[in-house]
Design a protein around this nucleic acid. Structure first.
Length: 947
RNA sequence: GCCCGGGUGGCGGAAUGGCAGACGCGGCGGACUCAAAAUCCGCUGUCCGAGAGGGCGUGUGGGUUCGAAUCCCACCCCGGGCACCA
C-alpha cells in the first residue's frame, strides 16, 4: 500500500514522498501569496484592484464542523472536497469566490470532556480547533482564512447576543406580516391606537402589568412550558433531542416531562413564511417535504359542544364527519373533568386519572393499540344533530395537542373506531365507502358497520348527514364537505375554521456552562431588561466548576441548577441602564448550540466588523436577491453543502433568525441558503464480537469470507464512519500513504456527491496510479525532464480533448465529480499511448483536473513553464466545431437487438442512413431477401429494423 | 402504519427512452526482476461453444413502445425520517 522505494525506482516518479513535498510547498505558497483571499466591496477586506479583476460574487458554504477531540476522519471532508473543487472551478471561470470555514464550538461534548478531565472547555476547544485547522489545511482546502470564526470567540458571540436582543426586542405584527421593533408596539399602546388586552389606558397599567403585556408579544419570551427534564444531564433537552424511547439524545439518560420557566422563541409566528418561501429555494424536493411535514400546516376547525359545564371546545380536521360524532373524549388532565364527572363515576375517574398521570407522554404514546378510558357519566350536545353524546376520558387524548378534547367519529377515524369497539359504543355510518374498499377487505358492500374491519377514511358520498339547515348527503368529496360544514359552524357561531401547525415554539435555554450567556438582567420585580449594546459581550465567567449539577438519573423531581447560578459575582451586579446604578440579577441560562450556527455565514462576510454584525453593503454584495437568477430570488448563499441530518432543525432555526433580521432591516436577503445540496456519508464496515461490542475494524482479518478479530470470529455490519463504531480512518494516514491529492480524487471518484458510499482503503490506490500516469505524460520519471512536444496534436487527439473539455465542464457545473474524473482518466489513457504529449493537451488536462487535485496540477503547471498559480487561469473552453465528427459509427438493431454497426456521415439524413444500414452485409444476411416491415432511424444515434 | 430515498458484474459505480456494465478496485495472464514489491501491457457480466457465434441478463411480475436499467401498474427487499397530532 505505502510507497516502498528502492534503488531501482525511478528518481522522478510521482510517489507519496514527492506528493507530500509538492503539497506542503504549494500550501505554503498559497498562504504566502494570499491566493484565496476574496475582496469585499467595502470595509477592511475591501480591495478595489482585486474586485475589478474578479467577476461576479459566488458564496460557497459548508456546514461548519464541531471541533471534536478525535479530529477528522476521512468521512468528514467528503462535502468539503466537493465545495473546494467547485470553488476552485468557479475561480477559474472568473467568479469572485467567498469560501471559508468556521467552528461550531459550544456544546455539551466539550463540557462533558471538561468534567471528566478537569480541563477548561476553552482550552480543549482551542486545541481541537487547531488540530482540525491543520488537517483541513493539509487537505488543500482553498479557504479565505481571514474569514474563519469560532462560535466561542467573544468577538463572535457578542453578535449572537446582539441578535438575541433584536429578537427579544421584536414582536410579530400579523397585519404587516413581519416582525417590528417592540418600541413601535409600545408607541401604539401609548397613543391608544392599539387597545390593551383589558381595554384600560396604557398609562393606567402598572410597570409590572405593562411588562407582562409586552412580554406576551416578544419573539423571545420566558414561559412556563412543559419540558423534558433530564436529571442525569442536569439540564433540559428540547423535544427534538429526545429519542423515541424517552431518553436523552446525548448521554442516554431518562427524560421526564416537567413544567419549568424557560426561554422560548416564537418561531410559530413565521410558520407560514417558512413554509411558503420554500418554493423560492433551490433545494431538493425531499428536504422541502421534510420541512413542510415538520411545520405541518393543516386546516381544521374548532367546534363547541354544549355541556353542563359550558361549551367544550374541540379541534378537528374532519368537521365534515361531525354528523357521525357519537361520543366525546377528553384528556384526563382536561380542566372540566371534575365538573363533568357524575358522582357514580367519581372513584373510577379518579383512579384512571392518577394512573394516566404516572405515565410520561412517551409512555402514553408507546402504548401502541390498547385503548383504555372511563365514561364521566355526563353528556355533551352534538351541535349538528342536537343529540346528547356521552363524555369519556382516555389517555390517547393529550392535553398538549389541540384543545385536549376530541369529538369521536368511530366510523371515520381508526382510533375512535377501536375505542368504540372496545366499549361497545355505536358506530353509525356517515359515508358510503366505494365498492373497491369493500372488495379489498373481502366483505360485501354494506352500511352495517358491524361487519367493517376498520374505519373508512377518504372521499366518498355522505349519508345520514343532514339537519334542518345543512345537508351534506350526496356530496362526494371531503373538501366540499369541509367547506360546507365550516361555513355552517361559523354562521351559527358554533365553531370556527382555523389553521394549525405541528411546529411548536423553540425552547431556547439550557442550564449549562459551555454556551452563550443571555444578555439579560432582572430587576427587583423580576422584569427582564436587555443590556445596552455597549455592555456586550456578556462574557462567560471563568470558573473551574463548569458542569451543571447532575442528579440521580431517575430522580424526576430534582430541579435544574445552572453552573452560572453558583458564580455570585456574575449573577449579582450593579449596573446603570440609563436611570442610575441599580442592583440586578443576571439570567443564568446559556443558549443552545443552535444559536451560533443560526447566522455564522453572515459573519464570514465581515468577520471583524465591530459596529455591525455585517456591513449592509457587504451583505448585499454576497447574499442579496438576484433577479438575474429568478424574479423571486430570495438571496442567500449560492451553494450550501451539508449532511441531511440537519434537514429540519438547523435549517429551520437559521431560516427563522434570518427572516427576523430581514424584517428588522439588518439583511437584504430573505433566505440564508438559496441552493442546498445534501452530500452523502462515508460508510464503513463495523465489526461486533460475540458480546455485541464493536471491535477495532482496522485490526479485523478476513479469511474465506469470514471475519476474525484477535482470532475470534466477529460479525460485519454497515455504519456511518465514526468513533462509536470504531471504524474511523484518519486523513493523516492517507496523506502519508498517498498524499492529499489522491485522497481528494478518491473521495470524489467513488460516486455522486449526494450518495453515501462505503470506504475501501484498498481502492484508494487507483487514483494514485492515475496521478502517476498523469505525471508521466508530462515528466520523464528517470530524468525529471519534460516529455512535452510543441507539435500540434493529431486531429483525433484534439477532438478527444475538446469532447473531454465539454463533458468535464458540464460535470463540474453539476457537482458530478465522479464522471468528470472518469473522462479525464480516459483522455490521459489516450495521451499515454502517444510518443510525446502535445503541450496543448498537457496544459488543458492540468487545468481541467486542478480543481480536484490542485497541488499536483500546480506543480505540473509550473514545470510546464508558468510562474504564477493556476488558481485564476481560465478553465479550458471547448471549440464547438471540434465536437462534431464527419463520420459516426451507429448501431443497427434488428427487433431491438444490436446486430451490426455502420459508419455514416454525421450529417446524413434518415433515408441515407437507412440505405447504408440495409446494405450492410450482416443485415442483408439476416433479412434473407425479405423486405423489412419497418425501419426506424434516429439520425446520428441508431437504426432499428423490424422484420 | 405513514412519508422520503434506493435496488445494475465479485466490489464502488456509468448509462435518465436508443450500443447495459464507462472509470476505478479486485481477479487472471504477461513484461521487467535472481526473486518479490512497485510499475507497465492484455483479458475479465453470465451460460453454451474448439471457434465463428449464439442464449440469458439492471430486485420480482405485468404493461406502454420499433426499442425500457430508464416511463406506467402491482409486489418484494434495503436505508433514512416521522408517528395515538384529532
Amino acid at each position: 500500500m505505502s510507497d516502498t522505494r528502492s534503488d531501482d525506482t525511478p528518481a522522478h516518479r510521482y510517489s507519496a514522498v514527492l506528493a507530500q513535498d509538492i503539497e506542503t510547498r504549494w500550501q505554503s505558497r498559497w498562504d504566502d501569496e494570499a491566493t484565496f483571499e476574496a475582496p469585499n466591496p467595502a470595509g477592511p477586506l475591501a480591495d478595489a484592484t482585486k474586485t475589478a479583476e474578479r467577476g461576479e460574487p459566488l458564496f460557497i458554504l459548508d456546514m461548519f464542523p464541531y471541533p471534536s477531540g478525535s479530529g477528522l476522519h476521512v468521512g468528514h471532508p467528503l462535502g468539503y472536497i466537493g465545495t473546494d473543487s467547485f470553488a476552485r472551478y468557479n475561480r477559474m471561470n472568473g467568479r469572485n469566490v467567498l469560501y471559508s470555514m468556521g467552528f461550531d464550538a459550544f456544546g455539551l461534548p466539550a463540557e462533558q470532556f471538561a468534567v471528566q478531565t478537569g480541563q477548561h472547555p476553552a482550552i480543549t476547544t482551542d486545541q481541537n480547533v487547531a488540530n482540525m485547522r491543520r488537517q483541513l489545511h493539509r487537505l488543500g482546502l482553498s479557504h479565505d482564512k481571514r474569514r474563519s470564526i469560532s462560535t466561542t470567540d467573544p468577538a463572535y458571540y457578542r453578535w449572537t447576543q446582539w441578535i438575541f436582543k433584536q429578537i427579544f426586542d421584536a414582536w410579530y405584527d400579523t397585519d404587516a406580516d413581519k416582525a417590528r421593533p417592540i418600541s413601535e408596539l409600545v408607541a401604539a399602546f401609548e397613543a391608544g391606537t392599539r387597545p390593551t388586552p383589558d381595554g384600560r389606558p396604557w398609562a393606567d397599567l402598572s410597570v409590572t402589568e405593562r411588562a407582562a403585556v409586552i412580554d406576551g408579544h416578544r419573539l423571545a419570551y420566558v414561559a412556563e412550558a412543559p419540558v423534558n427534564w433530564c436529571p442525569g444531564l442536569g439540564t433540559v433537552v428540547a423535544n427534538e433531542e429526545v429519542t423515541a424511547d424517552g431518553r436523552s439524545d446525548r448521554g442516554n439518560f431518562p427524560v421526564f416531562t416537567r413544567n419549568m420557566r424557560q426561554w422560548m422563541m416564537r418561531i410559530t409566528a413565521y410558520a407560514d413564511r417558512l413554509l411558503d418561501d420554500l418554493d423560492r429555494l433551490d433545494w431538493s424536493d425531499a428536504i422541502k417535504t421534510m420541512q413542510r411535514n415538520w411545520i405541518g400546516r393543516s386546516t381544521g376547525a374548532y367546534v363547541d359542544f354544549a355541556s353542563d359545564a359550558g361549551p367544550i371546545r374541540v379541534f378537528t380536521t374532519r368537521a365534515d364527519t361531525l354528523f357521525g360524532a357519537t361520543f366525546m373524549v377528553l384528556s384526563p388532565e382536561h380542566p372540566l373533568v371534575d365538573e363533568l364527572t357524575a358522582s357514580s363515576q367519581a372513584d373510577a375517574v379518579a383512579a384512571y386519572r392518577s394512573a394516566a398521570a404516572a405515565k410520561s407522554q412517551i409512555d402514553r404514546s408507546d402504548e401502541t393499540r390498547a385503548k383504555t378510558g372511563v365514561a364521566l357519566g355526563s353528556t355533551a350536545v352534538n351541535p349538528l344533530t342536537g343529540e346528547p353524546i356521552p363524555i369519556w376520558i382516555a389517555d390517547y387524548v393529550l392535553m398538549g395537542y389541540g384543545t385536549g378534547a376530541i369529538m369521536a367519529v368511530p366510523c371515520g377515524d381508526q382510533r375512535d373506531f377501536e375505542f368504540a369497539r372496545t366499549y361497545d359504543l355505536p358506530i353509525p355510518p356517515i359515508q358510503e365507502p366505494p365498492a373497491a374498499w369493500f372488495a379489498e377487505r373481502d366483505i360485501e358492500p354494506t352500511l352495517d358497520t358491524a361487519t367493517w374491519p376498520e374505519a373508512f377514511v377518504g372521499d366518498a358520498a355522505y349519508v345520514n348527514s343532514a339537519n334542518a339547515t345543512l345537508d351534506l348527503n350526496g356530496t362526494a368529496s371531503v373538501a366540499d364537505g369541509l367547506a360546507a360544514t365550516h361555513d355552517w359552524l361559523e354562521a351559527n357561531s358554533l365553531g370556527e375554521a382555523t389553521v394549525t401547525y405541528k411546529l411548536r415554539d423553540w425552547l431556547f435555554s439550557r442550564q449549562r456552562y459551555w454556551g452563550e450567556p443571555f444578555p439579560i438582567v432582572y430587576d427587583e420585580h423580576g422584569i427582564a431588561y436587555a443590556l445596552p449594546d455597549d455592555m456586550l459581550p456578556v462574557l462567560l465567567p471563568e470558573t473551574d466548576s463548569f458542569s451543571p449539577r447532575t442528579f440521580d438519573p431517575d430522580d424526576e423531581f430534582s430541579n435544574p441548577e445552572s453552573p452560572l447560578d453558583r458564580i455570585d459575582h456574575f449573577i449579582d451586579v450593579e449596573l446603570d441602564l440609563g436611570d442610575g446604578p441599580k442592583s440586578y440579577r443576571r439570567d443564568s441560562n446559556v443558549m443552545p448550540q443552535w444559536a451560533g450556527s443560526c447566522w455564522y455565514e453572515l459573519r464570514y462576510l465581515d468577520p471583524t466588523n465591530e459596529d455591525a454584525l455585517v456591513d449592509p453593503d457587504v451583505e448585499r454584495y454576497w447574499m442579496g436577491p438576484d433577479p438575474d437568477i429568478r424574479p423571486d430570488h430570495p438571496g442567500g448563499v449560492d451553494l450550501y453543502v451539508g449532511g441531511v441530518e440537519h434537514a429540519v432543525l438547523h435549517l429551520l432555526y437559521a431560516r427563522f433568525w434570518h427572516k427576523v433580521l430581514y424584517d428588522l432591516g439588518h439583511v437584504s436577503s430573505v433566505e440564508p441558503y438559496y441552493r442546498l445540496f445534501n452530500q452523502g456519508y462515508i460508510l464503513a464496515n463495523a465489526f461486533k464480537d460475540s458480546r455485541e461490542i464493536y471491535v477495532d475494524a482496522l485490526s479485523v482479518e478476513e479469511r474465506d469470507g469470514q471475519f476474525f478479530f484477535e482470532g475470534e470470529p466477529v460479525t460485519r455490519e454497515w455504519g456511518k464512519m465514526g468513533k462509536s463504531l470504531k471504524n474511523a480512518v484518519s486523513p493523516d494516514e492517507m496523506y502519508d500513504a498517498y498524499g492529499a491529492d489522491t485522497l481528494r480524487l478518491y473521495e470524489m471518484s467513488t460516486g455522486p456527491l449526494d450518495q453515501s458510499r462505503p470506504w475501501e482503503t484498498r481502492d484508494v490506490v487507483g487514483m494514485y496510479r492515475f496521478l502517476q500516469r498523469l505525471w508521466r505524460t508530462t515528466i520523464d520519471e528517470d530524468s525529471g525532464e519534460l516529455v512535452i512536444t510543441d507539435d500540434e496534436p493529431s486531429d483525433d487527439t484534439r477532438r478527444l480533448l475538446h469532447r473531454t473539455i465539454d463533458g468535464v465542464r458540464a460535470d463540474m457545473e453539476g457537482l458530478r465529480f465522479n464522471t468528470a474524473i472518469a473522462k479525464l482518466i480516459e483522455l490521459n489513457n489516450h495521451v499515454t499511448k502517444l510518443d510525446a504529449t502535445p503541450r496543448e493537451v498537457a496544459e488543458a488536462m492540468v487545468l481541467m483536473l486542478a480543481p480536484i487535485a490542485p497541488h499536483v496540477c500546480e506543480e505540473l503547471w509550473s514545470r510546464l513553464g508558468h510562474d504564477t498559480s493556476l488558481t485564476y487561469e481560465p478553465y479550458p473552453v471547448a471549440d464547438p466545431e471540434l465536437l462534431v465528427d464527419d463520420e459516426v459509427e451507429i448501431p443497427v438493431q434488428v427487433k431491438g437487438k444490436v446486430r451490426s454497426r455502420v459508419m455514416v456521415p454525421s450529417d446524413a439524413d434518415a433515408s441515407a442512413i437507412e440505405k447504408i444500414a440495409l446494405s450492410d452485409d450482416r443485415i442483408v444476411a439476416m433479412l434473407g431477401g425479405d423486405a423489412p416491415k419497418k425501419v426506424i432511424v434516429v439520425p446520428g444515434k441508431m437504426v432499428n429494423i423490424v422484420i
